[in-house]
Amino acid sequence: MDSDLKGYGVKMDQAVEHFRKEISTLRTGRPSLALVEHIRLDYYGNQVSLDKVAALNIVDNRMITITPWETKLISDIEKAIMGANLGMTPQNDGKCVRLVVPPMTEERRKELVKILKKMAEEAKVSLRNIRRDANEDLKKKSKDGLITEDRVKRLQEDVQKMVDGASSKVEEHAKKKEQEILST
């Protein structure tokens, strides 16, 4: 990769990775710790994620248990889960919080696929914004006499290839997640 484009390639990779992490939180029919590990709660005045203050486990095909390191956090964990709007009601036994993952309805699956497609489009928009920034940077360098116009054209083609590659990765991740949502 050309040194003039290296930073933009890294930004595109980060955008794809962000999308991949973001869609991992979309619920499928089976429990996943990604549903809850990102939930944040107040811990001694700091906002921390749930996985930093509790052990998260998948007990069976329908339940996630959250066992806090300190039992006094149970009510805070319940409030944080309710605030996260997961569509699940936490239950506690004084030692841990249980989340029963309800079976997915066909309507909910279709709704999640729509959300997934919206997220994929947002990821592609961010890739196009990175392309725009790269092209503006290249034009500025050409105007300042730092690179030739022929080189600008070649580099712009390279930027487009990078965007196309990153977009296809986003599509790949989205397609895989869609199958996961519809099949479980």
Rank of each mutant, 00 (worst) to 15 (best):
V101C: 04
Q160R: 10
N57W: 03
D93C: 06
D164K: 06
S167F: 06
M88V: 15
A123L: 01
E122W: 01
E37I: 06
E22L: 02
C96W: 08
L33Y: 11
K140H: 12
V97E: 08
R40V: 07
L26P: 01
E111K: 05
D133Y: 11
V97M: 06
Q156P: 02
E157G: 15
E17K: 07
I64C: 09
L5W: 02
K72I: 15
M1W: 07
T105A: 03
K153N: 09
V48Q: 14
V125W: 05
V152Q: 15
V152G: 03
I181S: 02
L35E: 03
T28M: 10
D133G: 03
N92Q: 09
N57P: 00
L146P: 01
K114R: 13
H18C: 05
K72M: 13
K79N: 03
R132D: 11
M162I: 05
K117M: 11
N46S: 14
A55H: 12
M88S: 10
R20L: 06
K6F: 05
E136Y: 03
L35R: 00
R132V: 09
N61L: 12
Y43A: 04
I130C: 08
A80D: 02
E180G: 10
R154S: 12
P31H: 08
A80R: 02
K177W: 06
R62T: 12
V100S: 10
L26Q: 04
H173P: 00
V10M: 07
P103G: 04
Q156Y: 03
A34L: 02
I39A: 05
L116H: 04
R154D: 15
E178N: 10
K141P: 04
Q179V: 08
T25C: 11
E149T: 05
T65I: 10
P68M: 09
V53D: 06
R30W: 01
G45R: 13
R98V: 14
G83R: 09
V170P: 05
E171V: 03
K52V: 09
Q160Y: 01
D42S: 13
I39W: 04
P68D: 05
E136T: 07
L116V: 05
N61I: 03
R27E: 01
N61C: 01
E180S: 11
H18K: 13
W69M: 08
T65G: 03
I181Q: 02
E136W: 01
E106M: 13
K140E: 15
K118L: 07
V113M: 04
K169Y: 12
M63R: 15
L33I: 15
T184I: 02
